[in-house]
Amino acid sequence: MAQNDTPELSHLIKCTVISCPNHFHKDLPPSKDDCLFFSFPPDESTATVWKEKCGVSAGHPTTTAKVCSDHFKPADYTDGSKTLLKPEAIPKDNLGWMVGMPEVKLLSKRPKFDLIKDAVDTNERLTQRFDKLIKEQKPLKDKIELYKKKIENVDNEVFRLKNMIAKFPARRKNGAVTVNLISKVFSPAQINMLLGKKKVVWSYDDMAMAFTLRHIGNRECYLYLKDTLNVPLPALAAVQRWVASNKP
């Protein structure tokens, strides 16, 4: 087809159902495999229902609007050839998830919360789901705040211990390591771990302290202290074995 013979895009008619990709060109003959397109009914109340089912706003123009045959049931036609709709026919099939939603416009920016809520409020099922999520949100927020406070307390304690360690460092003399007042903060097993010894024997008190730390906070807090802040603590697996072996 020559460039001058290209059909005008303005003559392209798209199905009014906003989730439907079907369309036709009014200047070209339809293919026998194409969908049929039906005009909106002249009855204003029926046309309003059509708009709702199509997912467009109440003020959407209907002069040239069309709905394709993909959205009608066999019982909606007056004849077997499915070319003539009954006056009371309503599009109900293949409407997509946007049924009952207001007309949607593509935005270059993320839509604001209020705009999303306004859209959700027009659909009863989505409204119920939205209300349920709002109720579930509050306890989750409260739990987040609780964990933030726990982490803050742990960070403060780690900061205090680090300052103490900085004041009383381990010293090397003639190849032998001498440990001074650091022993007032850490147990012998913890000091050995700080010194990089491969085999560390944890005492009963070490394991009891580790068990207490684990249950004051949670697993994530314990691993944060041990692996991220490098506080000398037994592995969680070792703590679990110790608890199992000391059950009455």
Rank of each mutant, 00 (worst) to 15 (best):
T228D: 13
H11Q: 12
R110W: 13
K162S: 11
F186D: 01
P29Q: 00
K112I: 09
D142N: 01
G59F: 00
V99Y: 10
E124G: 06
G196M: 00
P91W: 08
K184H: 06
P234W: 04
D121A: 14
A210I: 02
E145P: 06
I216H: 01
C221F: 08
Q137V: 00
R110V: 10
G80S: 08
T48N: 10
M193D: 01
N22V: 13
K117I: 11
W97A: 14
E152Y: 11
A119I: 01
R110N: 11
T178M: 11
R172E: 13
K138W: 10
I216M: 10
A65G: 09
T178H: 13
A238K: 15
T178V: 15
K109Y: 06
L126K: 00
V49I: 14
Q240I: 13
L229V: 00
K73S: 06
K14G: 00
R125P: 08
T212H: 06
P30K: 04
M209C: 09
M193T: 04
P169G: 08
I151E: 14
R172S: 09
N218F: 03
L84R: 13
D206R: 00
P102L: 03
K105M: 03
I13W: 06
I182D: 10
D155C: 03
N163A: 07
P169S: 02
G196W: 07
V17T: 02
I116E: 00
D33G: 00
K26C: 14
T212K: 12
A210N: 08
K197I: 05
A75R: 07
V56C: 00
E124F: 12
K53W: 00
K198T: 03
L229G: 02
V154P: 10
F159W: 11
D27Q: 03
V17F: 00
L133T: 05
A166E: 08
D70P: 08
R214M: 12
C54F: 03
K197Q: 15
G96E: 04
T178E: 15
S57W: 05
D76F: 09
D5A: 07
D121P: 02
V185S: 08
L12E: 08
K53A: 02
N230L: 14
Q3M: 15
K73G: 07
W50P: 09
N218R: 09
K143H: 03
A189L: 04
C54D: 07
E124R: 07
I182H: 06
D121V: 09
P21I: 06
A208M: 15
N123T: 01
D93P: 09
P61C: 01
